[in-house]
């Protein structure tokens, strides 16, 4: 079968049957592309996975683009990327249209209220699990704390804080380099 079609189908499959985030796609990709089809080695796949996390943008999509590019050049990249994005786009479009049709009163509001509370809980657990791996020194804890306070008091916008973090990171590493 055509390599582009294969990439598209494998990522479409992985995107359709994985929930809550892109990392969950990996086992499916590994099974299909590495074990069954031998299109890419596991070492390459996991190297791209690590590498993707250093780029801005949608991590799992960046990963899909790397794999597609490696297997079949730019066309392969587009095929894999399209496959990874389409399920989320199509299913979420349908879900949002249905959601807009739901009247928000009575029992439905009560149900939504409970779901919103669960949603807040998920956000806390997500933040906690990212914090556990990244807040491992005083500087990082300080940055996180400053960003938290500035955001809840609505003093500096979120995009601006990211830009400031980049600038701070550059100054910090430059300073350390000079010290050596």
């Amino acid at each position: 079968m055509n390599k582009n079609m294969t990439l598209f189908k494998v990522y479409l499959l992985a995107g359709t049957f994985t929930f809550s985030g892109g990392m969950a796609m990996l086992p499916v990709i590994e099974r299909e592309l590495c074990d069954k089809l031998n299109l890419i080695t596991k070492k390459d796949l996991y190297e791209y996975t690590t590498l993707s996390q250093t780029f801005p943008g949608v991590i799992a999509l960046t990963n899909a683009c790397f794999v597609g590019k490696k297997v079949n050049g730019t066309v392969g990249m587009i095929a894999a990327g399209l496959g990874a994005v389409l399920p989320a786009y199509i299913l979420m479009s349908i879900a949002t249209v249905l959601y807009q049709l739901v009247p928000q009163d009575g029992i439905i509001l009560s149900i939504l209220g409970a779901i919103r509370a669960t949603s807040a809980a998920f956000l806390i657990t997500a933040a906690y699990s990212i914090a556990r791996y990244n807040l491992n020194n005083v500087v990082n804890i300080g940055i996180a704390l400053v960003c938290f306070i500035l955001t809840i008091f609505n003093l500096v916008s979120a995009p601006m804080l990211i830009v400031l973090a980049i600038v701070f990171g550059i100054i910090l590493t430059y300073g350390r380099q000079v010290k050596k």
Binding site: T54, G113, R116, A117, S119, A120, L123, I124, A126, A127, I130, A131, N134, L135, V139, N140, I141, I143, A144, L145, V146, C147, F148, T151, I152, A158, L161, I162, L164, A165, I166, F168, G169, I170, L172, T173, R176
Partner: peptide, 26 residues
């Protein structure tokens, strides 16, 4: 090093949004 700073900022931002969400819902 730079990425580590950005991720730390992201953690603060997610906690802030979670905090505002709890403020609004709870």
């Amino acid at each position: 090093q730079i990425l580590s700073c950005i991720k730390a900022a992201s953690v603060g931002l997610i906690f802030a949004v979670a905090f505002l969400l709890i403020l609004s819902i709870g």
